[in-house]
């Protein structure tokens, strides 16, 4: 089950956050901003810690804990898509790919959207909701 989605720009600023479940941790918007930039810096350091040579060097892709998993996907331009979900959730990687498609189609192609600014696009909200419902269905 999906819990929440974060979109983080290349500077580490949170540009979109949405909870998909009532069980997701409820935090203030300041906390979400802080978590997003914390994740951005953790990813940067985790790249440096690598004991082996990395071809792409995206840093952390997946975090597993006892109560949830976190999956991250970074686009070539440095935008990070981060989803949290309950531990048994499958196909998170595909879901993030799908979200990236939607981002490219409904956010970047929106002439009123300014790069690296918070996302406020109606169509993106609608399509994202559909993608989430589809993912929840495929997992249940």
């Amino acid at each position: 089950m999906l819990l929440s989605l974060f979109v983080v720009n290349k500077a580490g600023g949170l540009i979109y956050q949405q909870n998909f479940s009532d069980t997701a941790a409820k935090l203030s918007s300041n906390d979400y901003l802080r978590l997003a930039s914390t994740f951005h810096s953790i990813q940067a350091i985790s790249r440096q810690l690598s004991p082996a040579h990395s071809r792409f060097g995206f840093g952390i892709e997946r975090i597993e804990t006892d109560t949830f998993v976190l999956q991250a996907f970074q686009s070539q331009t440095g935008v990070k898509f981060v989803a949290t979900a309950s531990p048994e959730t499958k196909n998170l990687k595909n879901f993030l790919r799908r979200v990236y498609d939607l981002y490219a189609d409904y956010v970047l192609k929106n002439p009123f959207y300014e790069l690296d600014m918070p996302i406020r696009c109606e169509l993106w909200e609608v399509m994202l909701q559909l993608a989430v419902e589809e993912h929840q269905r495929s997992n249940s």
């Binding site: 941790a25 892709e61 597993e64 804990t65 006892d66």
Partner: peptide, 25 residues
């Protein structure tokens, strides 16, 4: 940093104990 990060994001409290993370390598 990850420990606090996971604790904050955990859907249940107490919880969110980090078990592992993986990168591309």
């Amino acid at each position: 940093a990850l420990k606090n990060f996971c604790k904050k994001l955990s859907p249940r409290q107490p919880g969110g104990q980090l078990k592992n993370y993986s990168t591309d390598v």
